[in-house]
Design a protein around this nucleic acid. Structure first.
Lengths: 210, 210, 210, 210
DNA sequence: TATGAATGAGCTTTCATTCAT
DNA sequence: CATGAATGAAAGCTCATTCAT
């Protein structure tokens, strides 16, 4: 990857990044066409390869960029001293939907990459992908860990397995909501956020009444 | 589509169907290669086109076949007189995982198709896809509808919106579990089923304690 | 490389081989265009890649094929019991120019490859190229070795170094003559052979009068 | 070609010329990359095109420059009054290898251009190339002419044809030696010169003993 | 004078599809 | 019914060349 990319004016950088994110998020690595990316970014074919070398290079770059950006956002918005499981989720949701304001397809792209089949040609991003997974896991571990500490040990009716289920339910919901809106030309970020928060609150309410 | 296909011996039919389902489910329509399908099915390139005419024809056929097969299974295993929301879900889960025994990739393929971006070339299966959606919806409507009747009108703290949330949570979980196992070479259908049932039971337990 | 290539009728195989030899010999690996090869061979673009996978694969194939063919010819025409240096050269020349009747560009291609700059992309044929060099060397060693045995040890005015010079002179002449005729549309193989034999005879005459 | 080039300091001029000669000599016109030339010369891409307008313009310039330089050297070192064929060859060899001290790739580039396949795009240097050929020819004609005068007419057993052969043998040897050393990172100019002189002496010795 | 970002025509390669056998 | 050789349009990628700075 050509480091001179970062010397372009921010607007152009973001235009290129968003174009790649959009096309890759919508169609996946394989069906994404470089033609479509350059058209969306209003740049020439050659420029894309000048900066990223190849289609997979472009993918790797936006993947790496997205991971860094998301980690940054999560660290900024998720309070590490927060001890309530659902508050951590809410903060994480806050951070993630804030990302969408600048990079509307970044979350689609990133979260999608975690469960989408990974062709052999994507071996290039395995390391990066795993770094993202680690950070992502750490976040939920924080929530789960604190929750665990928060509880009395004898209250093992809320077992680790059950916590895991709760966690997976919320993650599957997040994934599903993002995916459900992938088609929309102008996605309503606020509405998506509201939907997700509703799910969190529902689960929380369940817990309270237990 | 060449109707003579059904004159092939059942084993060969299923070998071809499973090959197509596997490749389409794993890589999506676009990245699926006809070469890989014919290799997986141990047939010649020409034969695939002889029966299905084209790649999209092959996709349409297995899509249609899958929908019919699934509707059949759902109708067999889901008791229309069942009035409990969670029992309906359990029966539907039972039906679906039973499908996987004969066609291990059919559910991946089918459920995936509902939320995956649909390229313009897939216009051909829109009708079929919508038929599937309708049947699928009817199933949940049955559950929801019965549930609604089942409840006292004054208990409108469990509003339609909340039902919707509960429904979406379960559907997202189903989608997520299927997707999480897409990579495995020999997927453990029993385990997947257990995971899904655990989620259902968790939600049901929540409801009960409410 | 797709082994089914050899199942094509001989005429087509040779048409493809000759087209590749011609274009590669004339323009070198880099400037050779696959378009020009397929046009010369009257086949489609796809077929070339169907059989050889890539441009470098095509080059590797014709290189390997040429080496095998030439070794065969040399073994057929060069008498291993011949003890006269110049007779061995004449037999080798006979063998090589006979090759040109079926594959008019094979010798250009092959001999040229020994002294032409070898880009990194040609790493693929290094082994094959070295095998050719070995066989080629063995041939001249035969001539030189026999010559050495043929002579009285005290006659060290014709030292090994001088033999080497004589050998290099003849090889450079062979190379030069082939190259000088590379441009001609219909090369006069008989004339080229005569030119080369004239050089051999001149050197031989020098030796005799010594 | 931009005449301002000659206003650059000599060191930079030579750096650019040598970079172009090296890349063109090693890879031939077609595979030579302007990127590699500017990198080798430590100048920017734009500057190359500023001075030479195009790749072929760059090639033409260094070709023309090389021809002029070589003619100059030949005229300086080859004594026009020398009447011995082999002395003329030796002087020419002396002149040529002296060139390599300042422009290590010039001879490779120039001599190579005479026998390398000439793509249509090189039409631009045909005239220049032919001028070089003329000068080059004149040199050998001088040698041959003088040789002819030098000999008794009745000795026509050494016919014009035989002279031609002798001449071609030496030229092919020169070409071959240059080419054989093209790959070496630091070519041993002295050794190459010694090799060439050895060939000349061998041929001369043959003639003497005749 | 000097730079290198930007361009796009052209090249290599892929793959759904056809068709002779 | 079955094959796989053959096709060519489209995709990925390269590189000489231009141009704003």
């Amino acid at each position: 990857m050509n480091e001179h990319f970062f010397e372009l004016k921010q607007e152009k950088q973001d235009r290129i990044i968003n174009a790649a994110l959009k096309v890759f998020a919508r169609y996946g690595y394989d069906h994404a066409g470089t033609d479509e990316i350059v058209k969306e970014a209003s740049i020439s074919k050659g420029l894309l390869f000048h900066y990223f070398g190849s289609k997979i290079g472009t993918y790797s770059f936006v993947y790496d960029y997205s991971v860094r950006y998301m980690v940054l956002q999560l660290n900024s918005y998720v309070n590490e001293t927060e001890t309530n499981y659902f508050r951590v989720w809410e903060q994480a949701i806050d951070a993630q939907f804030r990302i969408l304001e600048l990079y509307p397809y970044m979350l689609h792209f990133l979260v999608g990459s975690l469960w989408k089949p990974m062709g052999e040609e994507l071996e290039a991003i395995r390391e990066c992908r795993e770094r993202f997974l680690t950070v992502y896991e750490k976040l939920w571990q924080q929530a789960l860990g604190l929750k665990a500490e928060d509880e009395e040990p004898e209250e093992h009716n809320s077992s680790a397995k059950e916590e895991m289920d709760k966690d997976r339910i919320l993650r599957y919901a997040m994934r599903g909501i993002l995916e459900d809106h992938l088609f929309e030309e102008n996605m309503d970020i606020a509405e998506m956020k509201a939907e997700m928060l509703a799910v969190v609150q529902r689960i929380e309410n369940y817990e309270k009444t237990k």
